[in-house]
């Protein structure tokens, strides 16, 4: 474990990613204190201003301060993505561990559901579920969870299948532990590290999906500031006020890149074979 941390620290790209994520998290948490203006405050007199002293990133079509909106949007987007990732991971790990550990009919039933879900294009399914639930950010998160867990379940199931045959699991049973305890205490810690890496890389995809679907109007609803929604709102003014699309777009790009850098670094650090190669 210490080796992994050490390895991760030496990975410059991963560290840059981690720093950016730390800054974004800071912004997300302290958004109300960092924003100069109320993100919803309309001021028609100052509409569509280019960046200036009063408004560092300019204003939008309703005269709202773009920087303040971006700061609040960071809060909304990052929270939604983190929540979606957490829910996907929890659901996927739980279902996968149950399938792998108990095997038999339980496993068969769960894996057939997984097969069915994997045979749909997940984006279409997400749109369908979000559409049925009605457009709102929380519904979008639920829809993404409903389609996103399958990949995690597959990975976890496979790892659990191999771990549960290990002698220390038999040992744990010989000491009198029940199934629930063995799964949570002995099996999951053994299979979780690849999932954490995948979740980190996935954060990037999830942010893209959330902003993308919000852009299409399925996620956060105006006037809520959200990167995707902001892109959509700025679209009609692309030629006269390009900053309305450039800045939210940059935020999305930077965030996704940061998560991908960190995810790649984590994967290298936690894979011992990779580590040996890197050491040489």
């Amino acid at each position: 474990m210490n080796d992994s941390i050490h390895q991760l620290k030496r990975d410059k790209m991963a560290m840059i990613g981690m720093m950016i994520i730390a800054i974004l998290t800071f912004i997300a948490i302290f958004a109300p204190y960092l924003a100069l203006y109320d993100p919803l405050e309309v001021n028609m007199a100052d509409r569509l201003q280019m960046p200036n002293e009063k408004h560092p990133l300019g204003t939008d079509q309703l005269g709202r301060d773009l920087l303040s909106r971006l700061v609040y949007a960071t809060h909304v987007s990052i929270t939604a993505a983190a929540l979606a990732t957490f829910m996907i991971m929890t659901l996927g790990v739980t279902i996968g561990a149950i399938a792998g550990y108990f095997g038999g009919i339980v496993d068969q039933a769960i894996m057939r559901i997984v097969d069915v879900l994997l045979s749909f294009p997940s984006l279409i399914l997400t749109i369908a579920i979000a559409g049925i639930l009605g457009p709102s950010l929380i519904h979008l998160v639920i829809a993404m969870t409903a389609t996103g867990w399958v990949g995690y379940s597959r990975i976890i199931r496979g790892s659990v299948l191999s771990i549960k045959e290990k002698e220390f699991i038999e040992g744990a049973r010989a000491l009198g532990f029940g199934n629930l305890y063995i799964i949570t205490r002995h099996i999951i810690p053994n299979v979780i590290s690849p999932v954490i890496v995948i979740a980190t890389i996935d954060m990037g995809h999830i942010i893209l999906s959330i902003t993308g679907l919000s852009f299409l109007g399925l996620g956060a609803q105006p006037p809520t500031p959200e990167w995707g929604t902001m892109l959509n709102e700025g679209r009609p003014f692309m030629e006269t006020a390009p900053h309305l699309m450039i800045f939210p777009g940059l935020m999305i790009m930077i965030t996704v890149l940061a998560f991908n850098f960190l995810g790649d670094g984590l994967r290298d650090a936690l894979d011992p074979r990779m580590r040996e190669v890197m050491m040489k």
Binding site: K166, F168, G171, A174, G176, R185, H186
Partner: peptide
């Protein structure tokens, strides 16, 4: 389960693989 470990315990063959590597 109440018997296992408390009344009758087992020591396994291979000490190298009989402990959980991540705990």
């Amino acid at each position: 389960r109440k018997i296992r470990g408390k009344e009758i315990a087992m020591i396994f063959q291979n000490a190298l693989t009989s402990m959980n590597p991540v705990l």
